[in-house]
Nucleic acid binder design. Structure first.
Lengths: 203, 203
DNA sequence: ATTTAATTTAACCAAATGGTTAATGCAAAA
DNA sequence: TTTTGCATTAACCATTTGGTTAAATTAAAT
């Protein structure tokens, strides 16, 4: 039935259960059932619940913030970088919509979870670099003055929220799966348009 | 020490624990400790964990969507209604930032949670009404054509996400509490500006 | 083929957990 | 003062939970 190794199946199962139930809410037996293996195997491949959790958590964290590098390590024009980032960000979140909710909630329970988890992603470099990019655009008169903080908050919000809030939005707006999905697909363009039009308005 | 009744203290404690840990992750003993009462009191005032949870959940749900009525039951001009809604929405979420995360996650675990929980908020009326408001503005040439769905997604995203993602944003953008709070306060205006400027651009 | 190592399982255990109960305190009514 | 009904507590119980272990099975090395 399954081509994957026990270890891989455990990680997939653990991701499913942890993201939905959180560290304390997840049951080792549920993870074992989901992975179709004996419960003892969980402790054979991963020392205990906490360690299994942390491995999953770190993987998901990197997935979410991996897209940020697109904003920096690209030689494209500013507008196109924004468009690429928006599209990538929406696609990533669509792949696993619970991910951001999971990360936000677990970080609130245990703030130390973030410490040292961004080794591979040089946040300070990305920040400095992107501020310079924005400044250059402002100097060239291409965009209005805006802070990195405001811009990033706007883009992340518009990309992430409509996907993580899917069940609520579908209920409130009375949408079926199909029309909801069309709306999200359309956002890959409309969010970029919104952001870029906002930047072009000179105060 | 506390002026509140045992029942009130339980609800406050339960809100704190449930919103952070979820239904399965929450421990009745933790709620009792947080409320400073004997564990048996929980079952004295509320039949069981599930019932206590559902009462908390419904309350929080209404708090979040209460603001939507501002968009309808106001006689203000369109632009001002948007501004009022944005300000209200941000204030509500600031009061209890875990609330939306909690609701989004629990609804994903158990979709039936939403069923029948909007008795007091006539969603269909609000939708119809607001669509008419938008149409009227479009007809008057005040705003570009936009769907209720897109507009609501944009506004909700920009208001809610930056607050629920606080710990992550502070870490990624290297912000202290003070500068983070300033940014959010500024959004009460800047989000409205962004939305309204977008609407004024005629395609 | 035999030994060795890695993988998998069922049975088990101590601790934690949701929930109950019988006894106790305690204020207002009689 | 006595009684009545609500509020509160400690002790208790059955079940669940994370974790262990020793035996069994399978795969790899000799």
């Amino acid at each position: 039935m399954s081509e994957l190794s026990a270890q891989e199946r455990i990680k997939i199962a653990a991701t499913k259960v942890f993201t939905l139930k959180g560290l304390e809410g997840a049951r080792m037996q549920d993870i074992a059932d989901e992975a179709n293996i004996n419960k003892a195997m969980l402790h054979y491949y991963f020392r205990n619940k906490k360690q299994l959790f942390e491995i999953i958590f770190e993987e998901k964290l990197h997935k979410i913030f991996g897209a940020m590098e697109l904003l920096i390590f690209s030689k494209d024009a500013f507008e196109n970088r924004i468009r690429a980032f928006v599209e990538k960000q929406i696609s990533i979140v669509l792949e696993f919509p619970v991910m951001p909710i999971f990360v936000m909630l677990e970080v609130r329970k245990n703030p130390e979870l973030l410490e040292g988890k961004f080794k591979n992603i040089p946040l300070d470099v990305i920040r400095d670099n992107f501020r310079k990019v924005i400044d250059a655009e402002v100097m060239s008169g291409n965009i209005r003055r805006i802070s990195l903080e405001e811009l990033l908050m706007n883009v992340m919000s518009l990309c992430i929220y409509p996907i993580i809030a899917e069940p609520i939005l579908k209920y409130v707006l009375d949408l079926n799966q199909e029309s909801y999905f069309e709306l999200i697909e359309a956002r890959k363009k409309s969010v970029s348009d919104l952001i870029i039009n906002d930047l072009k308005i000179l105060k």
